[in-house]
Simulated scan of single mutants.
Amino acid sequence: MRLHRLEITAFGPFGTTQTVDFDTLSTAGLFLLHGPTGAGKTSVLDAVCFALYGSVPGARQGPGTTLRSDHAPADTLTEVLLDLTVGGRRLEIRRSPAQPRPKKRGGGFTTEKAQSTLREYDPATRAWTGLSKSHQEIGEEITQLLGMSRDQFCQVVLLPQGDFARFLRADAEARGKLLGRLFDTRRFAAVEERLAELRRAAAHRVEEGDARLLALAHRMAQAAAGLPAARTPVEG
């Protein structure tokens, strides 16, 4: 996954629209997101997570919390736009949470429903094509392309959120499943399973051979002792 551009409007501490040009930041390779406490570092990462999955990590979107900035004008709606390339596809995700807005007629406020849109860029036509406006469809598409659920993304990618420690403390089975999806180890699992099948088949043939040898040894011992041979069916 490669991020190109992030636009944050009335989100977290950002009362107006702020744009992060990741392409420019990435020209020198790695870049550092830093600033004093309360500058909005976590909110930038939250905005990326919100664009991808429609929610932010952990308790920051629990009961009684809101994604909307307290500094935003009443008529400015909270919205996040993320331009990224994932799975070889250039996508644009736009999301806005459910939020109050001034009524168009009369006084007071009304609730604006949460909205999501997904578009894809076609290099041949140099145009964006709308793919979906369904929260569920977009969520399923992004989860499939990234190969991670929101919780897995927060544990492994959003390291500053502290969830990586929880990943490290997870049991071996949970870590194995997640790392297997991250690094697409299916082909290695298939080879492992095939080798296990060959091992089981070889072990079964050895057991059958041992049984035949034991039966032959028993008959030979009976013949040497002058006893009538037992009628033991022996293959070969």
Rank of each mutant, 00 (worst) to 15 (best):
A211P: 09
G236I: 07
R60G: 02
P228E: 13
G87M: 06
P63S: 13
R60P: 05
L182N: 11
D83V: 02
W128Q: 08
R5F: 02
G35F: 07
L198T: 10
R166F: 03
V48G: 01
G40W: 00
L131K: 15
G12N: 00
L91E: 04
I8E: 01
G40H: 01
H218V: 08
M148C: 05
W128Y: 07
L77W: 05
V48F: 00
L6Q: 03
F11M: 01
K177W: 08
E7N: 07
A215Q: 08
V157L: 11
T110K: 10
V156H: 10
Q115K: 10
G106E: 10
D21W: 05
G226I: 07
G54K: 03
F167G: 09
E193L: 13
P57A: 03
A196Q: 15
M148F: 09
I142K: 04
A224H: 10
R199C: 12
V80P: 00
V156W: 13
R126Y: 04
R126M: 10
A39H: 06
E235K: 12
A172Y: 07
R181S: 15
Q136L: 08
L214P: 06
R5I: 03
F11S: 00
A223I: 10
R205E: 14
P57G: 01
G88V: 10
T37V: 12
L182D: 10
V157M: 10
R2E: 00
L32I: 04
L198M: 14
T78A: 12
A230Y: 06
T143M: 05
F50G: 01
G40E: 01
L182Q: 12
F11L: 00
V191C: 11
A172V: 11
Q155R: 09
P123D: 12
P100R: 12
P63L: 12
L6K: 01
R68I: 04
R200E: 11
Q144S: 14
P123N: 12
L67I: 02
R90S: 06
F109E: 11
E193D: 14
G87N: 07
H135E: 05
L33V: 07
F31T: 06
V80D: 00
A229Y: 08
E120Q: 15
L131C: 04
R68T: 05
K104A: 13
V48W: 00
K113F: 05
E192P: 00
R231P: 04
T85Y: 06
L198C: 09
Q136R: 11
L227I: 06
R169E: 13
G176S: 15
A165I: 06
E120N: 07
L168Q: 14
Q61F: 03
H135A: 09
E120K: 03
I142V: 11
G139D: 03
T65E: 08
Y121T: 04
T19L: 09
A190L: 14
G139A: 04
M1G: 04
A190S: 12
S132R: 02
R68W: 05
K41R: 02
L214Q: 15
Q99R: 00
R231L: 12
L159P: 02
Q222A: 13
T37F: 03
L146I: 08
A124F: 12
S55V: 00
S55Q: 04
P63W: 09
L82C: 02
R2W: 01
